[in-house]
Simulated scan of single mutants.
Amino acid sequence: MKSITVTELKSWKDANEDFQLIDVRESYENDICTLNGILIPMNEVPAEFRQIDKDKKVVVHCRSGKRSANVIQFLEQEHGYTNLYNLEGGILAWIEEVDPSIEAY
């Protein structure tokens, strides 16, 4: 499984890199804090996977990186995705290393 650090993700954002950001947390978690990705809660991924691009880089994130890793494993095994990156440490790492002004939970 490919992964990306929060500092690498920040570089992609700053450089306007062409990628898709998918948030697999629950909507109440997204209400607390967000990286402005497309919200597809983990349990909805099997039905909504077509929203996830196969033709460009896709970063999948959750709170700490565990749920997103499970989602990536599912998408790679069941749907043949090869372009997915797990955000190491999830949004908690983003808050700690990139933007401490975001509310942690």
Score class of each variant (00 low, 15 high):
residue 11 S to A: 15
residue 23 D to F: 06
residue 40 I to F: 06
residue 104 A to E: 00
residue 46 P to H: 11
residue 34 T to C: 08
residue 47 A to F: 10
residue 26 E to P: 03
residue 21 L to E: 11
residue 62 C to K: 02
residue 93 A to R: 12
residue 98 V to F: 09
residue 16 N to I: 06
residue 21 L to I: 05
residue 71 V to W: 03
residue 9 L to S: 09
residue 21 L to Q: 09
residue 24 V to K: 05
residue 62 C to D: 08
residue 18 D to L: 13
residue 78 E to N: 15
residue 25 R to S: 06
residue 22 I to W: 02
residue 87 L to R: 06
residue 35 L to Q: 07
residue 23 D to V: 03
residue 69 A to V: 01
residue 102 I to S: 01
residue 63 R to L: 06
residue 84 L to G: 04
residue 21 L to G: 10
residue 5 T to G: 13
residue 34 T to G: 04
residue 3 S to P: 01
residue 104 A to V: 00
residue 3 S to G: 08
residue 67 R to D: 05
residue 60 V to N: 03
residue 105 Y to N: 01
residue 74 F to M: 14
residue 82 T to I: 09
residue 71 V to C: 08
residue 18 D to K: 14
residue 84 L to K: 08
residue 100 P to F: 01
residue 85 Y to F: 14
residue 25 R to I: 01
residue 68 S to Q: 09
residue 10 K to W: 09
residue 101 S to W: 00
residue 83 N to P: 05
residue 103 E to I: 00
residue 41 P to C: 09
residue 35 L to P: 07
residue 59 V to H: 11
residue 97 E to F: 12
residue 88 E to K: 15
residue 84 L to V: 02
residue 67 R to L: 03
residue 17 E to Y: 15
residue 50 R to C: 03
residue 17 E to L: 12
residue 67 R to G: 06
residue 91 I to N: 04
residue 32 I to M: 05
residue 61 H to S: 03
residue 57 K to A: 11
residue 67 R to K: 14
residue 68 S to R: 04
residue 92 L to G: 01
residue 26 E to F: 02
residue 42 M to W: 09
residue 39 L to V: 11
residue 6 V to Q: 12
residue 65 G to T: 07
residue 26 E to W: 03
residue 55 D to P: 00
residue 70 N to R: 12
residue 22 I to A: 03
residue 44 E to G: 02
residue 92 L to M: 14
residue 23 D to S: 12
residue 92 L to Y: 08
residue 102 I to Q: 10
residue 75 L to Q: 09
residue 86 N to V: 03
residue 98 V to W: 07
residue 55 D to E: 15
residue 32 I to P: 01
residue 36 N to E: 14
residue 10 K to S: 11
residue 97 E to I: 02
residue 27 S to V: 13
residue 68 S to V: 01
residue 39 L to M: 07
residue 60 V to K: 06
residue 83 N to A: 06
residue 5 T to I: 02
residue 34 T to H: 10
residue 64 S to D: 02
residue 104 A to H: 00
residue 100 P to V: 00
residue 41 P to S: 09
residue 58 V to L: 08
residue 89 G to V: 03
residue 41 P to E: 08
residue 60 V to H: 07
residue 90 G to K: 06
residue 26 E to Y: 04
residue 100 P to R: 00
residue 47 A to K: 13
residue 98 V to R: 10
residue 38 I to T: 15
residue 7 T to D: 15
residue 50 R to Q: 14
residue 54 K to I: 00
residue 92 L to K: 05
residue 61 H to Q: 12
residue 32 I to W: 02
residue 65 G to Y: 05
residue 84 L to R: 08
residue 48 E to K: 15
residue 29 E to Q: 11
residue 29 E to S: 05
residue 52 I to Q: 10
residue 70 N to D: 13
residue 6 V to I: 07
residue 18 D to H: 13
residue 3 S to K: 10
residue 35 L to A: 08
residue 105 Y to H: 00
residue 50 R to V: 11
residue 14 D to G: 12
residue 19 F to Q: 12
residue 32 I to A: 01
residue 4 I to K: 10
residue 24 V to A: 08
residue 84 L to P: 04
residue 16 N to V: 04
residue 45 V to C: 07
